[in-house]
């Protein structure tokens, strides 16, 4: 079995973040948690991640800001947007960061397996990183 893929869960809601992290860890991911984009950007250089589940509405920098910066810093990094805000659409910035229509998942999701499946998908697409 390959090393567990490392993923970042970026959400300011602790219960959400921890439950998702716990689920992903249980299902074979190495999870890095961050409560804000600033924290995440600080952590990432030391704990690189292959993918990130990003909430959009965050204190400070938004999820979109984070994706733009992270993508600029680590172009191979993949993103799944997981937001409860109804206004998030697949715009040019997100497309530029490699997101597709299926990569924006409305919060709450019917089951966390949907997020796990989305992560595996984007990680699989990134090719031989595994």
């Amino acid at each position: 079995m390959n090393a567990a893929p490392s993923v970042l869960v970026l959400d300011d809601e602790e219960l959400l973040r921890e439950s998702l992290a716990l689920y992903l860890e249980t299902h074979g991911f190495a999870v890095l948690q961050a409560g804000s984009a600033e924290d995440a950007l600080e952590l990432l250089p030391e704990h690189p991640c292959e993918a990130a589940v990003v909430d959009i509405r965050l204190p400070g920098l938004t999820g979109l800001d984070f994706i733009a910066r992270a993508h600029a810093a680590w172009p191979a990094m993949r993103f799944v947007v997981y937001t409860g805000s109804p206004g998030v659409r697949l715009g040019p910035e997100l497309e530029a960061a490699g997101l597709g229509p299926g990569d924006i998942i409305a919060k709450p999701t019917a089951g966390l397996e949907i997020l796990a499946a989305a992560l595996r998908r984007v990680l699989g697409e990134s090719g031989g990183g595994a």
């Binding site: 219960l15 959400l16 439950s19 716990l22 689920y23 937001t83 409860g84 109804p86 709450p108 999701t109």
Partner: peptide
Amino acid sequence: AHEINNPLGSILQAAQVVELQ
């Protein structure tokens, strides 16, 4: 929606993780 969806997400995810645990 955001304000509702986040707590809803917490509830759902927490419940699912409880089942998982």
